[in-house]
Write a protein that binds this DNA or RNA. Sequence first.
DNA 1: ACCTGAACACCGTTCAAGT
DNA 2: ACCTGAACACCGTTCAAGT
Lengths: 225, 225
Amino acid sequence: MAPRKNTDGLARDAIVDRALALADAEGIDAVTIRRLGQEFGVTAMALYWHVKNKEDLLDAMGDDLWAGLTVPPADPQRPWHESLRLVVAQLVDALRRHPGSLSLAYRRVLVSPAGLDVTEYALGLLVGAGFDLRQAADLATSALQTAIMLVSSEPGAELGVPEEDHAAHLERKRAGLLQLPAERYPNVRGAAEFMLNCADPDGYYESGVALYVEGARAMLQLATV
Amino acid sequence: MAPRKNTDGLARDAIVDRALALADAEGIDAVTIRRLGQEFGVTAMALYWHVKNKEDLLDAMGDDLWAGLTVPPADPQRPWHESLRLVVAQLVDALRRHPGSLSLAYRRVLVSPAGLDVTEYALGLLVGAGFDLRQAADLATSALQTAIMLVSSEPGAELGVPEEDHAAHLERKRAGLLQLPAERYPNVRGAAEFMLNCADPDGYYESGVALYVEGARAMLQLATV
DNA sequence: ACCTGAACACCGTTCAAGT
DNA sequence: ACCTGAACACCGTTCAAGT
C-alpha cells in the first residue's frame, strides 16, 4: 500500500522488477538498497519512500514471483493426480522464471494472494482425492518444496554464484570428482557428469514432478488400505 | 589444512563449532566474522589466521554438518527401498541437528568426504535396484533435497526468524489466514493449524520420507515396464 | 509528494606492525 | 606462530532538511 503515483520518477513496481532482474543476473546478495538506488540514478535513501525497508522489498519480490503463476482451471473430468501434476509443473515454470529469488518463495506462499490461491487449489485437489486435511496440508507443502528444490538443484545451476564464475566453478567441482579413487567412488565418478550438468532440463523437471506425484498416489493407497 | 596447533587460544574447530551453534540459535545471518571474534574475546582480524575468509568458514560449517551423518552399513538382505528409507532418515536426522545451517548443506555434498560417502552409497543402492546412472543421479539429488526441504519446511520452524520473534511471527501468520473469506479459502482455513504448527514432528518426517521412497519405487516400475 | 546530505552502527578484508 | 590497529569499501537505516 505504499504510494506510487510518480510515473516518471521512481515507482514501487519498477523497483521490485529491477530487484528481481538483479537477483536473477547476479544473485540475491547483489540486491542492495544502495545498488538499486545507483541503478535508478538516485540516492539509496530515495528508495525508502517507496519501500518500507529491505524486508518489505524482499517480500514484494516474493509476491511478484507468485503472481507469475496461473492456476489451471479445475476440471472434474481429469484424474486428481493429473491435475496435481499440472499445478506442480506450473509452479516449476513460475519459479524457473526467477531462479535468483527462489529463496523468497517459501515464506510468502501463505501470504501472497496468488500463493494462497494455489494452496487452496492444491488442498482441494488432495482432499477430493481422499486425503484428510492434515495429510493434504503436508502434501501441499511438499508440492511447493518439491518445485523449489527441483529448480534450485537443477544440475549445473549453481545458484548464488555470479554468471561469470559459473564455468570455472563447475570445472573445479568436476576436477574434484574425477580425482576421487575409482575403487571407492565408482558410482559418483560415473554419475559425475549427470550431477554437474543438465543435458535435458525438460526431462529432468518432468521426472522430478513425476517422482512427487507417484509418491502421492502411493501414499493414498497406503492411507486408504 | 589451516594450522590449528594453538590449543588454549583460538582453534579452527572451535570457531566452526561456535559458528554452527550461533547459526542454530540466531540464524545464519548472525554468523559474522566480527561477532565470532567478539564471542572468543578477540578481534575480528584474529579469525583470519584460522580461516581463509568467510566463504571458507561457511564451507567448513557445511562439512561439519555432513560429518554428523552415519551411513548405515550395507545389508544385501534388506530390500533396496528399505535401505533408501534408512539413508534419507539418517540424512534428516543429521540436518535437524543444525537447522540454522541447512542452506550450507547442498553445496558441500559433492565436496565433503562424508557427503561423498552418502552419495556413493545412495547411488549404489539405486543402481543395484535397477535404475540407470542418470536416473540414479537425479534420484540421489532428490533424496538430499527431500531431506533438506523436510527440515526447512517443518511447520512452525520459521527458519531465519530469531527465536524470540518466533511466537509473534506465527501468530501474525495465523491471524492472516483466519481472516480469509471462508467461502473462497475453505481448505486453507481448515488446514491452517497443520501448516503453522507441527503437532507430531516424527510422524511428519516419517511420511515425508515415505513420500519420496514410494515415489522412487513407482518410478522404477515405470522405468522397467 | 518525493528526494538528498550527513550521520550511525554495522559488515568483510588487507596489511603493516606487534609479541 | 598468532594476534592487533588502522584503514578501506561496502551494508541498512534514520532524520532533518530541501524542492
